[in-house]
Design a protein around this nucleic acid. Structure first.
Length: 377
RNA sequence: GGGUAGGUUCCGGAGCGGCCAAACGGGGCAGACUGUAAAUCUGUUGUCUUUCGACUUCGCUGGUUCGAAUCCAGCCCUGCCCA
């Protein structure tokens, strides 16, 4: 088995695991920095290594329209192309069906897009998505799903779920036909549970996908604008029906507190644009809460943004980073991205240690109390 | 000295008799962001008031008019051209 549960928490459903992938071993719970276009925005791959990133994301939709997945395959695959030799997870493009909704048409066959670059028509189907991800050579390929919007009426959610389940079967068929190998060295495939806010649909989807025996399972249809309460409910309505011995991945989430809440519910993997996007928008994440570095109150603050962070960011004062940001200097975006990812990855590292010692519950409460107090000195 | 263009709210810059506390851009202040069409987007930016509204403001002084940032006169100051 490529996934091993190493420890379980005593008072929550948190798990400490290890996932063996073609390009390396990743320890869970873990956070995956998002590198949609083959780059975690503003950061050098060596920065990611310094930060302890174990795996990053790439995106099927974006990479297939530019520079083209066939080109990437001919150049030796995504890892070589972007010079990153650790694991990569590729999203299937299903999310772009949702986020670029104005330009799409969904049919049984798949989704017909007009891409956002030159408006050219493009078809994404279960088979096509799997083929692109195979060309990219990612360690984990996500199944091609239909991500319903929020809010979503029952009727639409059912129809949408039908696509997701039938498309999952076709993805499975494509995998069996094209990638018959077994073992940790082959590309892994994760199913995606949809069902919107409807508990019975979530359960049904989780059970049907589980029966198809994928390498891991994702909880999708979250991070689409729903309130936090609905998001956690979707986790609660899904996680219990997923196989215990497979990794669970909450897609597109979340805030630091949300991450801990989901780990406590048995989720192992996360990805989110939040740390890097907030960085580019002038917000630093710290153990004491988010910090609008552009605010006037930091103008003369010579202390570091986060005294507990990595030395290479700790050496700069809040006043300096603020100055760089306000002056439009690119360095500020890099420094803040570095800080925010450092913070996310540190949080995951601390969570792993806490689970191993069976104290995740108290760790979580302490973290939340401090983070939510938002008392940055 | 002669000619000419102009002086507008933090800056640039529109406005050229009422719809003007004054477009737009920048800057300032604050906010939003959750499988990245995002180094993006939103709000706010004369004073007082919770709202209605009141008050002060378009170089200065005076005038014309029911009404002036806008018209007239004088003055002050800047840029450019000629001596």
């Amino acid at each position: 088995m490529s996934y091993t549960i190493l420890a379980k928490d005593t008072t929550t459903a948190a798990r400490r695991g290890r996932l063996v992938l073609p390009h390396g071993v990743v320890e869970t719970p873990m956070f995956m920095p998002v590198g949609t276009q083959g780059s975690v925005k503003t950061l050098h791959p060596d920065d990611l290594t310094t930060l302890g990133a174990q795996i990053i994301l790439g995106n099927t939709y974006h990479l297939s329209i530019r520079p083209g997945s066939d080109n990437i395959r001919e150049m030796g695959g995504l890892h070589r192309f972007i010079s990153w030799d650790k694991p990569i997870l590729t999203d299937s493009g299903g999310f772009q069906v949702w986020s670029l909704a104005k330009l799409r048409k969904i049919t049984e066959e798949g989704v017909r897009f007009r891409n956002h670059l030159d408006g050219a028509y493009m078809m994404l189907s279960p088979e096509k998505s799997m083929e692109i991800q195979s060309d990219l050579g990612s360690d984990i390929a996500m199944l091609f799903d239909e991500c319903p919007p929020y809010p979503c009426e029952r009727r639409y959610a059912e129809t949408s779920l039908g696509y997701t389940l039938r498309w999952a079967k076709r993805c499975k068929q494509w995998i069996d036909d094209h990638q018959p190998q077994s073992g940790d060295g082959r590309q892994h495939h994760f199913g995606i549970v949809q069902g919107s806010i409807y508990a019975d649909l979530r359960k049904r989807c989780a059970e049907e996908l589980s029966a198809m025996d994928f390498d891991g399972y994702a909880i999708g249809g979250v991070s689409v604008g729903e309130p936090e309460e609905e998001m956690l409910k979707a986790i609660d309505n899904t996680a219990p029906y997923l196989p215990e011995e497979k990794p669970r991945y909450a897609m597109g989430l979340g805030t630091p507190p949300q991450l801990l809440e989901m780990i406590a519910r048995g989720v192992d993997m996360f990805d989110c644009v939040m740390p890097t996007r907030l960085a580019r928008h002038g917000i630093a994440l710290t153990p004491d809460g988010p910090m609008h570095i552009k605010n006037n109150r930091w103008a003369k603050d010579t202390s570091p943004i986060d005294p507990e962070s990595h030395p290479s960011i700790r050496r700069f004062s809040r006043a300096y980073v603020r100055h760089l940001f306000k002056a439009g200097e690119i360095l500020s975006l890099r420094l803040l991205s570095f800080q925010n990812l450092e913070f996310y990855l540190r949080l995951m590292s601390q969570a792993r240690v806490a689970i191993e010692s069976g104290t995740f519950g108290t760790f979580k409460d302490a973290f939340l109390a401090r983070y939510n107090s938002n008392q940055i000195q």
